[in-house]
């Protein structure tokens, strides 16, 4: 499909870059000046949503518009899982990318949005191969790990990356059509998706970013060394003492993710970082990553 190249292509241009959560035009400007390759416009950063315990929805379009006017880099915004009308509104707003996000309260407990119907591209979270392939099948043009947003704890993102890697290896080791069919059934994906994955030697047709819990330059570099194409940083930056400094440091660390000496330099003297919520202390029902299916 010709549309797909244009949709997935923008995500390819974001590679090796950092996408930052911002709640107003001022933060968007800080992000742009720090070298963010895109911003995610949202009303409240995940750490605050998590604390609020309220229903979280798409942000006020006025706020998103202000941000779109302020910066020249691509602007993304979130809609609720399955809420295709919020997605229509964001498309009408001419947003550059939509994140169908588990960070907001899901609107549909069975289905995600049929993303192929939209001209605007979508990014979706995935914590295992089944979720990743289902999202691609629905038309997602970019993936990210779910991690555990708003915690500053990188462990969930790391385990999502590791699990997907392990499952891809399992798929590549499948020998017969019957084995492929069974595996497809087990992870609830179309057989065709697995066949394609095997044909592509285990590579997704879309880029995969790290997200959920990135709080330091080392966190970002860790995800890059584990094979991610780029990084989303949510609460980490603007919940720290010196957002601008940290934002720049994370951008630099993603470029030089393979150079410990440089990461040492970028990690030094950043001041107080975001508070952390250890994922181990959360009940399963409190985990945002368990949303989406």
């Amino acid at each position: 499909m010709s549309d797909f190249k244009v949709k997935a292509g923008l995500a390819q241009m974001l590679k090796g870059g950092v996408i930052m959560d911002v709640v107003n035009a001022e933060q968007a400007q800080i992000a742009e000046r720090a070298g963010a390759c895109a911003v995610m416009a949202l009303e409240r950063i995940p750490a605050d949503m998590r604390a609020s315990g309220q229903v979280c929805r798409m942000s006020d379009p006025q706020m998103i518009k202000d941000i779109m006017k302020t910066v020249s880099i691509p602007v993304m915004a979130k809609c609720r899982i399955g809420h295709f009308v919020e997605a229509q509104v964001l498309e009408a707003l001419e947003i550059d990318y939509i994140d169908e996000s588990e960070v907001l309260t899901p609107a549909d407990k069975l289905l995600h949005i049929e993303k192929k119907k939209f001209k605007v591209p979508f990014v979706c979270g995935a914590r295992n191969l089944g979720e990743a392939l289902r999202r691609i099948d629905e038309g997602a043009a970019m993936l990210r790990t779910k991690g555990e947003a708003g915690t500053g704890d990188i462990s969930e993102a790391v385990s999502h990356i590791a699990l997907i890697k392990k499952q891809i290896e399992e798929v590549l080791a499948l020998k017969t059509d019957k084995e492929i069919e069974e595996y497809a059934k087990e992870i609830r994906v179309p057989v065709e998706s697995l066949v394609q994955l095997i044909e592509n030697k285990g590579k997704f047709p879309v880029v995969n970013f790290a997200a959920g819990g990135v709080a330091t330059p080392s966190d970002a570099a860790l995800c890059m060394q584990l094979g991610c194409d780029g990084v989303f940083v949510g609460s980490g930056i603007f919940k720290s003492k010196h957002p601008e400094k940290l934002a720049k440091a994370i951008v630099n660390a993603v470029t030089h993710f393979d150079d410990p000496k440089k990461i040492l330099e970028y990690s030094t003297d950043l001041g107080e970082l975001m508070f952390g919520v250890a994922v181990g202390g959360l009940k399963d029902t409190e985990k945002l990553s368990s949303r989406g299916w």
Partner: peptide, 15 residues
């Protein structure tokens, strides 16, 4: 290559 021109320029300056 392609990418974000502001990001590439800023990273070039800083590094």
């Amino acid at each position: 290559p392609g990418g974000e021109s502001t990001a590439i320029s800023l990273i070039a300056q800083r590094t």
